[in-house]
Design a binder for these strands. Structure first.
Lengths: 143, 143
DNA sequence: TTTGGTGCAAATGATTTGCAACCCT
DNA sequence: AGGGTTGCAAATCATTTGCACCAAA
């Protein structure tokens, strides 16, 4: 199991708790789980888990590039399975109902990346958040 | 003064506190002020201000499209003067030192916008956050 | 056995809310 | 006058931290 090696290499231990956190987030790919949502889901499989462990585990898994942190402007940090550059995806946020959709696409073209390079900034990755109306809410507005 | 009319139209009142909050954020265009930073700055001109007023005023000014809320993944909400579509700008976030730079450009091309339209989403505006290394930190890494 | 890891409870920080007093219109 | 606003303090929420105990390696 690669996960275990990845941890051990850094002197970290792979515990039941860490494994279940990973499983839960992967199982719910496409949702954007907050820390407390993850806490609730982990409890279903491991009722003894403590909230503090969740809060200590999540940033750790993020640093190891196993999870990605996302911030959807709703007052809490959320996580999703890590997506390598080739699968970069972005978020469409409905300003009316709050629904979040994903678009899988490399939204920045060569030109745009050039503009950024000109600012002396070396980009590792990027995230685009688009605010607008989802189909449902756009139709309601017409009524 | 248009500001006053804009408020009165909605049955809202233009108070000294609200005016000073606007002034402070506009004066510091280019910085990305957190609520408590705004609180401190407002106090310089109006020492009686209460923190709760700041927290009530900021979302109000945002709804009125006088300010924009930004979330730079550092655990607090920040604000900057509202930028109409023509002046859309985005943020470069240094993952090492945390510095935030701005790029003024419409980073999404026609093609990319088309991709989003195909998702049945009508975009009002969007925000791009790019994570990477600023010039200074990139140079330090070489050392 | 030897650390790193965990649960729990208390501490922090950011933001919200109830309420009486206040002040734009 | 009258209702929107404010300051203050208490309440909430998300997240962090100290510490004794537990468990991977």
């Amino acid at each position: 199991m690669k996960l275990k090696e990845q941890f051990n290499q850094k002197g970290l231990r792979i515990t039941k708790q860490r494994q279940i956190v990973m499983e839960v987030v992967e199982k719910h790919k496409g949702r954007h789980l907050s820390s407390s949502e993850i806490f609730e889901l982990v409890k279903e499989n491991y009722s003894g888990i403590g909230l503090a462990t969740i809060y200590r585990t999540l940033p750790l898994l993020e640093k190891m590039k196993l999870l990605s942190k996302i911030c959807l402007d709703d007052g809490c940090v959320r996580y999703e399975p890590y997506a390598p550059k080739e699968q970069e995806h972005h978020h469409l946020i409905c300003v009316k109902c709050g629904a979040v959709y994903e678009v899988e696409a490399d939204l920045l073209g060569i030109e745009e990346k050039q503009i950024i390079m000109n600012n002396h900034f070396s980009t590792q990755n990027y995230m685009v958040k688009l605010y607008g109306y989802c189909k449902t809410c756009a139709e309601e507005d017409v009524v």
